[in-house]
Design a protein around this nucleic acid. Structure first.
Lengths: 140, 140, 140, 140
DNA sequence: GTGGTCTAGACCACC
DNA sequence: GTGGTCTAGACCACA
């Protein structure tokens, strides 16, 4: 389920791209599986169809999806390799950022690990909950 | 040392704000310490002075810095309280995001922790290195 | 043998029209000769029958073919005159484009001729080979 | 000088892309040279700015141009390599098509060469003149 | 002034 | 119904 945050600096079309990429990389969307039609997804997200169209177009250019005239779009058959790459890139990036941020505060590795572990056990990042964004605090 | 990424979706003035906030919260900049002049920082970052001016203006509105005519800007005396808040908010957010992202890939807590630990030991988050951003693949 | 390129900007029905015109002008299809049935050709090209039907309809309007109820379509008896026209138009156009394109790169006539000759001897234009189209780099 | 043909099957944004690529590959536009602003070019071509913007955006994604916020776009510094590739790809494609078309009419190599040579000497493809498009005869 | 994104709404090609 | 392109016009971020 893709969520659009209009307060984010990240353009809507990019959020949609990332959302679909994530669903592909995480296996929610499987190769050859049909995607929502542009119009449907636009209606879902309460967003202009052109915006979704741009996301789809760029995803196709990057090889994640295929689209056939008048028959909609589907996950690319060879998306598996890309998915693996993407998945590693995402995890690498996000973990790296977390460590970098913590190091900036002069925490040593043990402290960082302890904090992270506590967060993890506390159920942090629960997908069901989502991350409660603070309005007006646009970090990404 | 602030770094500006012109390929990021985050506006430059916001990147500068975050950079200065980080330096304050991490203690690199201490209360009453003078900040670079607007034009110096602009020259440093190869950025328009207006952009730096906007960052400073907003930081002042948020209480992080103070600006005195002819004396330039300096870190607010009462920045300590803000810094603590900010520091916790940043760590909470970034760790939460990391966990959330990992959970999206259906990793269980043990796996997440193992990956994070490996990253940490591998020297992850080295600010000097950074991640070479690929244009058109912007994540924040 | 008609080939359909779904990545081309040229609509499929137009590609089919051009393919049949080419077969008529080149003599592969002779006056009064029967064409494939709409549904056969559609099955062959893995294309919607409506698309083939449209190509046939327009070819009939342009006088290249005739359609008789229940007897299917056949090459028009008077297609010879049209074929000659068409053939010259095609050659003129394609050679003109080739020369124009080469001139745009400031090649002089001798160089152009040399390049063309090399291509010719190298077996250029082998229809079987074709040029592997790259999606998103569509030239026609 | 880019020309837009609204009767072509090739989308306007693609015609603009090709026109700029051609100017880069032919040396009319040199590395680091500034391009027309989106709005100016749009006014020139009597086309919507969004259409030009899309052309520029894709050219940037392909590495032909660079664009800096609020400072316009310029030919990429490393466009030379791309230009060479592109130039060869264009010539290869166009010559190949010409030969293929001629072969379809069962002309042998000598005949093809003779026709091509005649066209060349007759001043075919004169860039100054342009190619007189036949209205409604959409071939590309 | 620049480019970037988004919306709203139209028309087309194809199934 | 599908996606694709285009227009018109708005607003924002940045120089």
């Amino acid at each position: 389920m893709i969520k659009v945050d209009t307060d984010s600096f990240v353009p809507i079309f990019e959020q949609i791209k990332q959302g679909i990429k994530r669903d592909i990389t995480s296996g929610v969307l499987k190769p050859q599986q049909a995607l929502s039609s542009i119009r449907d997804l636009a209606a879902d997200l309460i967003v202009n169809p052109n915006t979704v169209a741009r996301a789809y177009r760029e995803l196709e250019m990057e090889g994640f999806i295929e689209t056939r005239q008048a028959r909609g779009s589907l996950v690319a058959g060879n998306s598996a390799a890309l998915a693996k790459q993407e998945r590693e890139a995402i995890l690498d990036r996000i973990f790296n950022e977390a460590v970098a941020e913590a190091r900036r505060f002069y925490l040593n590795d043990a402290e960082i690990l302890r904090l992270f572990e506590r967060k993890l056990r506390a159920g942090g990042g629960n997908v069901a909950t989502g991350e409660p964004k603070v309005k007006g605090d646009k970090h990404e």
